[in-house]
Design a protein around this nucleic acid. Sequence first.
RNA 1: UCCUCGGUAGCUCAGUGGUAGAGCGAUCGGCUGUUAACCGAUUGGUCGGGGGUUCAAGUCCCUCCCGAGGAGCCA
Length: 515
Amino acid sequence: MAPLQGQELLGNLLGCEPDRRRRRDRCLPEPAVLGRHARLHLVASAPLRRAGLKRPLRPPRRHDPRGVADAPGRWCRISALMSDPIHVSSVRELSRNIGNQVILSGWLDNKRSSGKIAFLQVRCGGGTVQAVAGRKDVSDEAWADIEKVTQESTIRLTGTVKEEKRSPSGVEIQLAGFEILHLTQDFPITPKEHGTAFLMEHRHLWLRSSRQRSALRVRSEVEQAIRDFFYERDFTLIDSPILTPAACEGTSNLFETDYFGDKAYLSQSGQLYLEPAAAALGKVYCFGPTFRAEKSKTRRHLMEFWMVEPEIPFLEFDGLCDLTEEFVAYLVRRVLERCQPELKVLERDQSKLEAIVPPFPRITYTEAVERLNKAGNPIVWGDDFGGDEETILASQFDRPVLVSRFPAAFKAFYMQPAPEDDRVVLGVDLLAPEGYGEIIGGSQRIHDHDLLLQRIRQHDLPLEAFQWYLDVRKYGAYPHSGFGMGIERFVAWMCGLSHLRETIPYPRMLYKIYP
RNA sequence: UCCUCGGUAGCUCAGUGGUAGAGCGAUCGGCUGUUAACCGAUUGGUCGGGGGUUCAAGUCCCUCCCGAGGAGCCA
């Protein structure tokens, strides 16, 4: 129940008849949750006075910030002292405080003023609201402060909330008081344009801009949706280790660190650690940071990124493709449902996202090669796709396409060979539309001990480092499948951003680790 | 690592071998409904570093540094 504030507190408590002799009296719902700054003054109303009760009733919890008026059956009237403004910690709370006095602390986004009127754009709780002050509405001291306050200064303001069509948000605060908590000098990011190199040097301050705030809110929603998706389907979250003794897949470059005299590496995937856990707990997933020391210098790569990886026992390849499709459709729907303000700030073409509904087209690698050749791309069977190939393929569909059954030669060692043709493996990549490319890579894993051993040897991997991984095939082997999704690529797709660096608060890129 | 393009005021950028420029910001003044407010004035420079060609280099050449985009690799 939303706290009752200000004038709403005037009324009769607990389901009694409204006292119609006083216009402002109203009947409160039961139980009434009182706003933080409500001061209760309960007095016996006429029927109780007639019954002989003369002294005021004590309020249930006087000055309790979250007080509940819980005096069931009492026949009494509440009145509130209206002198204290209501503390507001986010501009989102303003729409239910129309007409009330509020007090709000935040940062000054921008200011526009003429000689005798000033408009302040105030950021509070991630959103912004316009505050307006006329010269005569505030004290001389407050007006002097309004005149000298600078962009990104910290301020505290008091005023009345009102609906106002001329305000960008439709709500406005008519200022009564204004106070500078900290006067900022020369905030580097001005309201005009800046280059990305400059903005990245000031990433810690760039976060305050509306587009960056929106992208990070979408990221937060996506991460919440991921956890909800797996929680609702009875998965257990397994936090895989970040420090690992050896390469998980052996192909990519790893960040090396010292581990008490031994070498250790930052994890590039949690999947291998998930497979033993799946034998213990059933459906599992991991979700955490991942590190690749590849010298990739493109808009689609970060050195540190977040990956979610589910692993499902007894799920075979077709079921994996179904899960991939269901997962992506769920996340897109959640973003559309809960991130409307953010998508509007980002000017995302939402019709492109609304089209992301099952079923997704599914083609094999061999079919993909044929399609590419028809489209004039000279790729031959056995080559891996590059960015161009992914874009051409994805552009042939209006929703993500699942490409499966790749040549074993360029895929990871643990992928299960296809039953009909052992030159290809049961791996699947999901290519997103609009040039966003590979979002998900998954596969059915080899569960036969001897075959996996053979693959480890073929890939020249250090056998001793994989003994524990082989144990999964030694003690109760089971078919299983899973996939990995890069959060930043997915968020970039949702937001329509061309570069991953804006989808993570502090991106780590080639040679760049500041701030 | 390779390829391409860049580096000029705090920021974004013009600049034809011949006097270093604009807009924004900042500072000062004006303006009672602004929407990246507007109007006037002021302020602001190691032209990325070094070397060379030239009477003269921001401009041409060499070299190094830094940045952006892409390739490979991948999510």
